[in-house]
Design a protein around this nucleic acid. Structure first.
Lengths: 249, 249
DNA sequence: CGTATAATTGAGCAGCGTCAAGGGTTGTGG
DNA sequence: CCACAACCCTTGACGCTGCTCAATTATACG
């Protein structure tokens, strides 16, 4: 049970999840479909949180696995000297602590960025249900393997790429994840990260992020202000990011 | 089947694995114990490789999961401009591509550092056997979750720590992994990484690594030369690394 | 409105990269 | 046993990327 949640409701899975727009892209799809193993009723807990709220602290034990339904969140660790590293951003449909599905421990703190809704599943329950499924896609290892790949890409970004490359790749990576969940990512769309968030994720200072966004703005590539990201030239951004545009980019 | 292996033998699991000193710390322990699900005979392939050999290239499909038996190896990606990032170092007992256990794809290239021996298991076989086990420790997700945690620690190292901190942490992290496998890590012990390896892993240049190792040497903390690491002052190293010494350090 | 938070801009500096030259060690073949 | 090549490490000079410190200006929120 989260330590600082301020409101929560008990529902049967049907009432809220039935209308969930990202369900079919997430773990939930495997847990809620109406076969023998489906979770329903009191197994499931829907929670709400305000922006900036810390939901879990690093090093605690999680019996429930939280899945983000709505809003953005982040996972971070803090270290000596007030330094802070954001490990990943969480979008609707993401497991908030995929690792803890297997270990029971979550090694990073979890904090909301926007107003958020999330949903708790019992660890044991998930593992039991996934074990009954035969499809490889339903294997819990899939989800964590995917996250591992993202983490390793970020590792190379921090190790070997310039600030411009890093920021371009962060934006495009998030855009791609939004796209795969059927959320808006082109033209002007809500983008709640502050420059400080970007800095903490990419190992930079907020000041330097400001300068680089200014470069992008002057070059007519993109503009980020007031929580709205305006994309003008994705091709140029891909070029800076050292990425090939995908077919659907 | 690896592309560039130069020699290989077929054995029953008993002949080589029976004498394996790291077996009980690795995945193999769960696969080879003599119950109904044990792998034996032609399911298992022992391979050998020379130093510096590339065993698998990024982006290929792996039907067999390789496990390192002896020697050191590394996983890396190369990117434009001749840049290269080492994602992880592999020690005896490590799965060479834990991710591919679930996805079948390995996203990084794998290269030996020293002369090495490794062992191939069929993916399907592993998953089948692990599924029959009840203990949580035998869950394949455990192994990858552990790697994920290491990866995220390295992410914070590259994002927020100085070159001195990074190198100190790399050394201590490797020492800890050696210790947990019952291998030598104190006093003088074999340490096959070159300064270039360290640089590629920590996002630095070989030249800068050289300068920092000089600092450590002058300060009487440790000395690394000719493949031998001599530890003089682990406490000071922990201090530089911003780490608490463990009980058994 | 007043206050806290977020972003902008400038000046100066440090950590680390680049370029370049040289020395040590290992291994190989004559 | 020596010569040579390949590799690894060391050291110096210099420059750039990105950090620090500081002041100012939006912008959101109660």
């Amino acid at each position: 049970m989260p330590q600082h949640a301020n409101t929560f409701d008990r529902h049967s899975g049907d009432s809220i999840c039935a209308n969930c727009s990202v369900r079919r892209f997430s773990l939930c799809e495997h847990l809620l479909v109406g076969d023998a193993g489906a979770i329903a009723g009191p197994q499931q807990l829907h929670m709400a949180a305000k922006p900036g709220q810390i939901l879990y602290r690093a090093g605690t034990t999680l019996e429930h696995l939280p899945v983000l339904c709505e809003g953005w969140a982040l996972r971070f660790v803090s270290l000596s000297g007030g330094r802070r590293q954001i490990l990943s951003f969480l979008l609707p449909g993401d497991m908030m602590s995929a690792m803890s599905l297997f270990t029971g421990r979550n090694s990073a703190s979890i904090q909301t960025i926007t107003k958020a809704r999330y949903c708790l599943f019992r660890r044991g329950e998930i593992l039991r249900i996934l074990a009954t499924k035969d499809t490889a896609q339903a294997d819990g290892g899939q989800f964590i393997a995917e996250q591992q790949e993202i983490c390793e890409q970020q590792l190379t970004d921090l190790g070997r790429r310039s600030a411009q490359e890093r920021i371009a790749r962060l934006i495009l990576g998030l855009a791609r994840r939004l796209r795969h969940r059927g959320l808006q990512w082109q033209g002007e769309f809500p983008f709640p990260l502050t420059q400080q968030h970007i800095a903490d994720a990419m190992g930079l200072t907020q000041i330097h992020v400001s300068r680089i966004l200014k470069v992008f703005r002057k070059a007519g590539i993109m503009k980020l202000s007031h929580g709205i990201l305006a994309m003008y030239d994705t091709l140029a951004l891909h070029h800076i990011a050292d990425m090939e545009p995908a077919d659907d980019d």
